[in-house]
């Protein structure tokens, strides 16, 4: 995207967009948090300290380490 729109059009578009963002992030998304399945999912994730938005394992609150019980169930290197 290049070039600048005329200042009035640009301001109107920016203001309209800002209103939409304010409406979604200020009203709709917070309301969704109170809705049963969403509230349940968020509560479970917070209780277990899981960050579903982690892009890579280093961003997780708990680093994945091989659980001890795996050794009892699996033959790792036969």
């Amino acid at each position: 995207m290049t070039g600048i729109q005329s200042s009035t059009t640009a301001r109107l578009r920016l203001a309209g967009g800002a209103l939409v963002i304010a409406g979604i992030w200020g009203v709709i998304l917070p309301r969704m948090l109170e809705w049963g399945p969403v509230a349940q999912h968020v509560k479970l994730m917070e209780e277990r300290r899981v960050d579903p938005s982690a892009m890579y394992y280093t961003e997780l609150e708990r680093l994945p380490l091989r659980p001890e019980w795996v050794d009892r169930v699996l033959v790792l290197w036969p």
């Binding site: 995207m1 070039g3 600048i4 729109q5 640009a10 578009r13 920016l14 309209g16 967009g17």
Partner: peptide, 9 residues
Amino acid sequence: LFIGNAAGV
């Protein structure tokens, strides 16, 4: 995208 398309760069 929004800023670039609404107001330009």
